[in-house]
Amino acid sequence: MREILGDIRRWQRLGRRVALARVVDLEGSGPRLPGAAMAVADDGEVTGSVSGGCVEAAVVTEALEVLGKGDRRMVSFGYSDDEAFAVGLTCGGTVHLFIEPLDW
């Protein structure tokens, strides 16, 4: 969170709406620990990261949906060879994210 604070504050000053995605849990091997965060502005600008670049694009899509609908959701990404996951981590772990609008 510390490293994305500046970008989020800048977006807030510009009156943009922001969604925040945080890693809350990790099973097996994964590059980023719980607390890793990225934020997405309503115009699609992105700051921070929640993996080694494996799932960020899908997180942006989810985050923009969250901004559109105003809901909060858990999203999980697993090993990309697993049919249950369209997008996944290449390292074999599963990462659980909580995505919400920054309305608090």
Partner: peptide
């Protein structure tokens, strides 16, 4: 946090202040 349309985010502002400090 600037203009009148800007959404108030008191908890996040507090988080930012604590991180800054």
């Amino acid at each position: 946090m600037g203009g009148g349309d800007t959404q108030a985010t008191p908890v996040f502002d507090r988080v930012g202040d604590l991180l800054d400090a």
